[in-house]
């Protein structure tokens, strides 16, 4: 069955854990394994943390979280209206970070833990990340017995 959830919240560090919890709960409607849910939690944590650290470095701004389940697949869209990324290719490099206490691994984790990641950004307009993931064991609602 298809489903969706839309959520908006300010880019505060305390909301990173909240976003993880919401996405993990929503994702559990599909037949993800615990290890896959863990990967989704990390990917969401990295994406929302990026909004807090990079999109709105001075004052909290708006983060939009859109979750969709369609055709047995989870689609996560995380959108901010912050300062944007100047050079996406450079940002994707492992160990590249503009902040000293950060490892520059956020985008690497997002790419390796999700099946697909699309990053679009415009300086001063904001950044949108779309991440998709299908349960390894296949879509949950395929088959006659799965439908109520």
């Amino acid at each position: 069955m298809n489903n969706y959830l839309k959520l908006e919240f300010p880019s505060m560090p305390s909301n990173v854990g909240l976003a993880r919890l919401v996405v993990a709960t929503f994702a559990s409607q599909l037949e993800f394994t615990l290890a896959e849910i863990e990967e989704i939690r990390v990917a969401v944590s990295e994406a929302v943390s990026n909004c807090v650290i990079h999109a709105y470095p001075k004052n909290p701004g708006i983060i939009e979280l859109n979750l969709t389940i369609a055709d047995g697949r989870l689609i996560i869209q995380i959108k901010d209206f912050g300062k944007g990324i100047e050079n996406i290719e450079q940002a994707k490099q492992a160990t590249y970070s503009t902040e000293p206490e950060h490892m520059g691994l956020g985008l690497v984790f997002m790419e390796s833990f999700m099946d697909e990641m699309i990053l679009t950004s415009r300086p001063l307009e904001g950044t949108t990340v779309i991440m998709k993931k299908c349960p390894e064991r296949g879509p949950a609602d395929v088959g006659i017995s799965g439908n109520n």
Partner: peptide, 11 residues
């Protein structure tokens, strides 16, 4: 749970 922010703090 740990993510890259946690790893950064350890590093």
């Amino acid at each position: 749970f740990i993510d890259s922010s946690g790893l950064g703090a350890i590093l």
